[in-house]
Design a binder for these strands. Structure first.
Lengths: 349, 349
DNA sequence: TTGAAAGCGCTAACAG
DNA sequence: CTGTTAGCGCTTTCAA
């Protein structure tokens, strides 16, 4: 198999400029000890031939790529887009850049494995663990510094920044209970599983709040949905209504699900927050622009991004300095506190 | 500078398994001509040492990365997230995967240049040209197959898939005019510039529709905004109202801007579509879930993604086969037809 | 100031 | 079936 039309290499430039590749290398990297005339000639040839260094070769040689990989379950979820933006912004001044890849929520393990293998080529890796099997992660065995960000407790092989799903959801639920809701749907909730995934944890908070406030709970109000997207949120609320389930509050597993729910309530002629109060989770930018504006749990998005990068920088520094003990240094695990942002989809106190 | 704790290499495995690196290579790549016993021994060592091939070295050697790069202006825009998802889905069966990077809308040229240089390491590159200076693109000189996707006519150095901004916006505007609007705001519009950027082109369509239907147009209704985001859309509508500008229709430059506008209209007590009709552009998934649901121009999203990949595959095939004439093959430029999707934010005929 | 040579980790001819 | 060797394109001692 041909590799296609050969690209211009440093050797081509060297030949054309009648110098060694060493000299060309120095010129294109702005290193000293090159005669001005030589530099000039090389630059001319570079321009003429349109030479650009092959980043792969450079990376192999340098042992680093100056790139940080971010693995997200899906590329079209506002939450991850906004997380990626925060990370990219913070990374920019460091001279590194962010590269985003999708792991695929429920794809074959094979695929997940491939995703992981490819991450090896980054200097550091941030993995959002939503929807990944812990087994996949344990297999994940490479020297590259890794920070996990997500919601579920995990084997502590890596630094891990967690959002406080349980308390966040408990706060949200308590808020609805305090504002008078008594039959609250846990939309996108999950129960009866041993898995500690995000829906399960948020559902746990929902239970806790009821217990704390001594409000009885109808298990039929826990409404699982297949995907945490708008369409599923919409469909689930319509179904509840069709089934004649009565409710006066909704805790949505995510803001995106809540947006679907709001649309369904609108179609059903149910007023928010007068008839049904709604609270979301994630505090994505969209919450400010829904009708009505969505009360939501902010999992500490700014702090999550900052903490992830702090951990990563620290691991990378240790890694770069070659500290052998870096690998065995105990992994950090922090839970970022969540905070309720009250907007219009819940009633005033 | 140390490169950090040395990773396990193929050489380490070879040594431990008492074979050559060739044999190890064959084993990990599943190639034939390895004795079962040898294979087994190698695999044991691989597992024991936790060896994983260095993708950078492999890429350098192979001359390809099996990765397609996608350059987007921002990581948190629904439109690009949804485009990325379409592309990633379509790419999956081909054994290649998508890698997303941000160009940064209005960042320094330096940064754009850096982004481009890094794209060299992909087998193919898809660049969304919103907000990129054509000069940047002309400098873009590498052998990697490139397809441009975006809205503005460009020097035809590359294959280019365009959306029909002018006709799309004209259709949207005509729709409002036909449904009775007479004072239509072009929200996020732009005029009086020679640049052929997206806001300008969509504004052009807005003008065209007025001309075609013989409806006079108040230039003060073209409302530029700094950023095409929800907050700017919101602020602009509030400002128009504060300034006492009267209007009975809004053509928003993008759906995201329209979402901000809807929220502002709600706050102002203006009914949609009874008092003011609103139409967006992009047909992002969110349009189905706004209140009211947003009428929008679908620029042909499915077809855009499919066409981009068709072009790219074709370029990549030519490139891989080493056809020298591949480079000089004329570039394709197609405009995908746009189509109006009528929802609830505009009145029935 | 310049260049020769080694080598990053891997794969592919080619011998044996 | 296995190993030796060369080399992907680049950077970096080290010597000249």
């Amino acid at each position: 198999m041909s590799t296609g039309p050969r690209a211009v290499t440093i050797g081509d430039v060297a030949r054309a400029a009648q110098v060694s590749t060493t000299t060309v290398s120095k010129v294109i990297n702005g290193l000293p000890r090159v005669a001005p005339k030589t530099r000039e000639r090389v630059l001319e040839v570079v321009a003429e031939l349109g030479y650009q260094a092959n980043p792969t070769a450079r990376n192999l040689r340098a042992g680093r790529t100056d790139a940080i990989g971010l693995l997200v379950p899906e590329l079209d979820r506002p939450y991850f887009g906004q997380l990626a933006t925060r990370l990219a912004d913070a990374l920019e001044p460091t001279g590194r850049h962010l590269v985003v890849q999708r792991s695929g929520l429920s794809r074959a393990d094979e695929l997940a494995a491939a995703s992981f293998a490819r991450l090896r080529m980054y200097d550091g890796v941030i993995i959002t663990v939503v929807g990944l099997n812990p087994p996949d992660l344990e297999q994940l065995n490479f020297r590259t510094p890794v920070v996990l960000v997500g919601e579920r407790p995990l084997p502590r092989t890596f630094d891990h920044v967690m959002m406080d799903n349980v308390e966040g959801a408990a706060t949200a639920t308590a808020h609805l209970l305090e504002r008078g809701s008594r039959r609250i749907v846990m939309l996108g909730g999950r129960q009866g599983t041993t898995e500690q995934d995000m829906p399960t944890l948020r559902t746990l908070g929902y239970y806790k709040a009821h217990a704390r406030l001594g409000v009885p709970l109808d298990e039929r109000l826990v409404a699982p949905i297949p995907l945490l997207d708008m369409a599923s949120g919409y469909a689930a609320v319509r179904r509840l209504a069709d089934d004649g389930v009565t409710f006066d509050g909704i805790v949505a597993a995510t803001d995106v699900v809540a947006i679907g729910a709001l649309r369904a309530l609108g179609d059903l002629g149910i007023r928010v927050p007068a008839d049904v109060q709604v609270v979301g989770f994630d505090n994505i930018d969209e919450t400010e622009f829904t009708t009505p504006r969505l009360t939501s749990v902010d999992p500490g998005n700014e702090e999550i991004a900052a903490t992830v990068l702090r951990f990563l920088e620290s691991r990378m520094a240790a890694h770069a300095s070659g500290e052998p003990e870096a690998a065995s240094e105990p992994t950090a695990e922090v839970t970022i506190p969540a905070r309720l942002v009250v907007r219009e989809s819940t009633r005033p106190a």
